[in-house]
Design a binder for these strands. Structure first.
Lengths: 131, 131
DNA sequence: GCCGGAATGTTATAGCATTACATTGCCGTG
DNA sequence: CACGGCAATGTAATGCTATAACATTCCGGC
């Protein structure tokens, strides 16, 4: 029941699942949970996810082939978001750092590299799981 | 003909291929090139890659499911390496930044997050391809 | 009403990675 | 030397992730 009225049915279903999940979900895990809603093929999930990623409402975690709802869906800001993924409990923290962003932008400038997209993922154990 | 005499046959074969490649290679691409050397199964490649990653002689690019030889195999240093991947020509630049490393370490400290591994990948176009 | 574009549905297939099990080779100890 | 253990290897089968290709439906603007 998210208030994303501009989304299509499939996109809403997928986003709702991601928002209710406590940990990242694979596309196939999402699909399994949406079979009762009539979804049957992976492509239906991937298409919805593509749009959600474009809109910044969800993120892809490259290092674990999974997806999460954006923790800050209001501010579409942030050209660079970092994720900390706990390998024990699966919890993901989303954060950003101006200085890191500036450093990477500086490197790209010097090298003449035109940036499309940056991924930054820290894997380890969260405070609770490290104890 | 790398001077990695401590490596097993399969590991040497895989590393040689990576070192000779101009762009990242998928495990299956490596396999295809090593069939003449007697390798037949993906697992043989993945096992060799696992060891090479452990030793820091190769890196995995999570965002494109591919592997590269480490550009600086001598210094095993660097807890944090960043990659810039050109989406046009496939060239990969490997670099590191002390300040970025410190910022991320600082975040982890404050959060009590124990880091195992960090991946940082910038995708875009290199100077030549952006022109 | 009609057209065009986006979203959807469906099937098949491509690409990436691991499980499970059998075998081999090597080294250190007794 | 025999033996035991361990790492590496070989092989087959399977599972997971993602996309291609094509047909259909939905919906808003003219």
């Amino acid at each position: 029941m998210s208030a994303h009225t501009d989304l299509t049915r499939n996109q809403s279903l997928v986003l709702d699942r991601l928002e209710k999940a406590e940990t990242p979900m694979s596309a196939y895990a999402i699909l399994d949970q949406l079979r009762d809603d009539g979804l049957r093929a992976p492509l239906q999930i991937y298409r919805a996810l593509d749009k959600l990623l474009d809109m910044g409402l969800a993120h892809r975690l490259e290092s674990i082939n999974a997806f999460v709802a954006c923790a800050h869906p209001h501010c579409h800001a942030s050209g660079l978001i970092a994720f900390a993924i706990c390998e024990k409990c699966g919890q993901v923290s989303e954060f950003s750092d101006e200085i890191v962003r500036d450093r990477l932008a500086g490197w790209a400038d010097r090298e003449g590299f035109v940036v499309n997209r940056t991924t930054m993922e820290i894997r380890g154990n969260c405070r609770a799981c490290a104890a």
